[in-house]
Design a protein around this nucleic acid. Structure first.
Lengths: 336, 336
DNA sequence: ATTATCTTTGCACACGTTTGTATTTTTAAA
DNA sequence: TTTAAAAATACAAACGTGTGCAAAGATAAT
């Protein structure tokens, strides 16, 4: 284990001033070519690594973008992380991902860490139990660019990338109605979150519009999981009125429902139709293949990164509102 | 947008010395209670946030652990990331995840970023095209704790968490042989990576041991994907001798093979038996359900974190070799 | 040879913290 | 009161880097 060498070590060894070394390393034209090459050679040989803490303390900026997601272990988010990571790298940024674990407290800690370390910018999707947004407001206060996607804080002025959940859920519900289903249930997340609230409104409006008697929603507050999906179907089937179709908000829930349906000998789509959110290979693996609502992770990532990049370059001001909506679409398969 | 207040700002405003403010904020017993409360109140009111760059420059350590994975968008890795994130948080650390995108160049950049920012430690699994390990050696050189898991660099002395790929693949192959399959193919990754190399050896030894004539391996060098899986099966079936069973290294490959098998009207397990690596819900969704090799992500994460924690606490020295092997197990289902 | 211009290097300070040591203030003992 | 001890605060230096400014050295013009 060796001590890291600093700019001053190089200077001392080469008998020049450390400011000259600093300039040489940054290819400043003011330093003589011979001196520069000498410095560069020495630096490389001794594995000099800039101390970013010193650089940033001095005032320059970081090239790391922080990404906050509720759960990395979720196709939708990990797809977006993956896309963003590539986009950022092409532009010279490095993405650092933080997982809030759907937990408000961890989210606050993460945001504080980001502020303390002075990251270049933040792209975030909030945790399920986040209702307070003072921590995110702090980013605005301190001038750190922030872009929300998918799950957003409604009361913060900052660019947001949303998915058109209202219309697509309305459309999906109407599709089921048109197919003749009468008792459509909606399995979703906490409605104080925009994503789930919007879907609920779309669902409700479709049900009302067509005057259906059955209106049944289940909000899952815990983590989305196959287990939760199974319990959900068990519950719905134990009630006096049972659904003949389900719209489900997460791939894990949907798979749980499908597995449980098989165990209860419910045939899909004859006894139970199924529409799921999310774009996962499982939709193709399932038998019958799952009709699902597709939201382009690539498009979301591109727009979000573009907005953040513009904020970093001061083309968009901190605190400026700028909401982009991404269209979703229904991929029709066999489950209804 | 407001300027961040510093310890000196607080000192000036409260007409005391900034060193006193520093001690007050850190609850140093040497500072008067009244003064301390005054400082704390002022700091809270004005949203003081420690400048970590200054703190670290001064010499103290970071509480952020870096995690490097080839691809976040992969159940195995995202499961481990998720587990690690929880474990670390409980111990007061924050996990920051970096994705190498299976790319050596990005991996090098990430490691350099980590060194430059002086992270507390690193847990890593290497990219497919990483053969050189000087960048990881640099971590050792500079005394940054490093733990490898799953895909490791063989020539670095540092703690590693491995999965018993050799034995489990041998066992899986023998299971198929015992079931009467004669032409077993092995679809895997680049064999210079320990994970895939070990599996190949296990497979080969089983085939040899039982004197089977058919020995067919395919190494996929590109990203594992369903598409790659489909192409793989197409290729195998176009050869003069075709497999009657396949062991496949990644859930995406396996699903691709299954989808393609269906399209080619190959019945599973009658025409083609299938064993896949990985612990994914899709295994249950598939019909027939997939027999798969299960490696406990929870266990891997726990051991890896424990090792890193011990390194950070100097209980394990930098550069000490310490390899833990995690047993895998076969979960028998319907696909063979 | 003198002055002017350009090139190259050195000097000193700042960024925000922490910490050993010195200094002041307060309290207790004589 | 004076002195000793204890408590609280102030001072100063350091971490590694970048940059405006001054100084020195080299080259060109007169």
């Amino acid at each position: 284990m060796q001590k890291r060498i600093t700019i001053k070590d190089i200077a001392k060894e080469l008998k020049i001033h450390h400011s000259t070394v600093s300039r040489a390393l940054r290819n400043d034209p003011r330093v003589n070519e011979i001196t520069r090459d000498m410095v560069l050679a020495y630096a490389q040989k001794h594995e000099y690594q800039t101390n970013m803490n010193a650089v940033q303390l001095r005032g320059s900026v970081n090239n790391t973008i922080a990404l906050i997601v509720p759960n990395i272990n979720h196709t939708f988010f990990s797809d977006i992380v993956s896309q963003l990571s590539n986009l950022a790298y092409q532009k010279g940024f490095i993405i650092s991902v933080f997982q809030s674990n759907e937990d408000y407290t961890q989210e606050v800690d993460i945001v504080n860490t980001i502020i303390k370390h002075n990251y270049a910018g933040v792209i975030a999707s909030i945790a399920k139990n986040t209702t307070n947004s003072t921590h995110f407001n702090l980013l605005n206060t301190f001038g750190i660019p922030l872009v929300f996607f998918d799950r957003v804080c409604g009361d913060i002025k900052t660019p947001k990338v949303l998915i058109d959940n209202y219309n697509i859920t309305l459309e999906a519900t109407e599709f089921l109605i048109q197919k003749g289903y009468k008792r459509i249930a909606h399995v979703t997340g906490p409605i104080h979150i925009n994503v789930f609230g919007d879907r609920q409104n779309g669902y409700n409006d479709a049900i009302k519009k067509h005057g259906l008697g059955y209106n049944r929603q289940i909000s899952i507050n815990q983590d989305f999981s196959a287990e939760a999906g199974r319990n959900c179907l068990t519950k719905l089937m134990s009630e006096t009125e049972n659904p003949d179709a389900i719209i489900s908000s997460s791939i894990l829930l949907t798979m749980g429902i499908a597995v449980q349906a098989r165990e209860m000998s419910l045939r899909i789509p004859q006894d139970l139709a199924l529409i799921g959110f999310g774009n996962h290979l499982s939709s193709l693996i399932m038998q019958p293949q799952l009709t699902s609502i597709y939201q382009s992770e690539k498009e979301i990532a591109e727009i979000a990164f573009d907005l953040l990049d513009k904020m970093i370059n001061k083309e968009i001001a901190i605190g400026e509102e700028c909401t982009k909506t991404v269209k979703a679409q229904i991929v029709y398969r066999e489950s209804c």
